[in-house]
Design a protein around this nucleic acid. Structure first.
Ligand SMILES: [Zn+2]
Ligand SMILES: [Zn+2]
Ligand SMILES: [Zn+2]
Ligand SMILES: [Zn+2]
Lengths: 149, 149
DNA sequence: TTGATAATGATAATGATTATCAATGATAGC
DNA sequence: GCTATCATTGATAATCATTATCATTATCAA
């Protein structure tokens, strides 16, 4: 999905408002970042001091329904995160969640085809989408605890 | 983990109360079932009309911390589910979530070793646990919509 | 320009989970 | 068994992210 396509998105039956456009702008400018609703709200507020958080929640929901935003919660008890859904059509991408610094990074490869085929064969379960999170320690955090030398 | 081991579990520094035992009994009697806190509460209530839901939440939390219960939320906006954690020590098992009837079933095989090795090699990410949910249509639901013949 | 109606902002409501607290119960030591 | 100690309980208030409500405002097709 190219920038130009997102830009002209008038969201099929939704009006084009200043607030909605600002929210889209923030999300487009934060590719690969997983933001909470409040974080998005704070970014948008820099451009529109008067925007209400309910407006952010409302538009996030619309964007999610339209397949533009991906919503995920990486740890129980934390708030939901959103990111630009750049691989629409295919399966949801996987995430690497660092348990030390909290960083969440995306993984391009899917690699679940074999397992899904097996699930279909042995369980008769027809998979349409999936969710795979890896929890562990990221490269940077590993370096920090390694002895220098 | 054998029944006998669970039975004598006095939870390392926790007192053995009637309520706690009843909650454990319910969970042990529902192997392979993914229950919400309220469902557990309702089952326990049959044996103790006076138990409070706060007690159920408190004990669920303790059991989770002790590695006896596994907590998971299979769809955003739904309430958390709990199940007996029978494969303690190894990685969390995968789930097949039917989007039509809501049934959640477990998967014995892990099969993520190759992907985790690749994640370690290419990203330098050291995986300690993971979460894999497959969303789709279960065998029973597929039969229902198939033409008879 | 105007009318229909969608969107906004402020705020109240929701609902699952936690915290509080006085009363009760479990258990170790006597 | 009795008692003192301290965890646990039940009732209920609090929390907090998210939604609903509603009067006001903005968008846009005609
Ligand atoms: Zn890290
Ligand atoms: Zn992502
Ligand atoms: Zn089904
Ligand atoms: Zn399970």
């Amino acid at each position: 999905m190219k920038n130009s396509e997102i830009k002209k998105l008038n969201l099929e039956g939704h009006k084009s408002t200043r607030q909605r456009q600002l929210i889209l702008d923030v999300i487009r400018s934060k590719r690969g970042i997983h933001m909470t609703a409040e974080e998005i709200y704070n970014y948008v507020k820099k451009k529109d001091e008067k925007i209400g958080i309910a407006t952010v929640y409302r538009n996030i929901k619309i964007l999610e329904e339209e397949g533009i935003l991906l919503k995920a919660r990486f740890k129980e008890g934390t708030t939901a995160c959103y990111e630009l859904c750049e691989w629409s059509g295919s399966h949801t991408h996987h995430h690497l969640v660092c348990l030390r610094c909290g960083k969440v990074s995306d993984m391009e490869q899917d690699l679940l085809g074999t397992i899904e085929a097996l699930v279909a064969d042995t369980k008769g379960f027809k998979t349409t989408d999936h969710r795979l999170d890896f929890y562990g320690i990221c490269g940077e955090c590993q370096k920090e605890t390694e002895p220098k030398g």
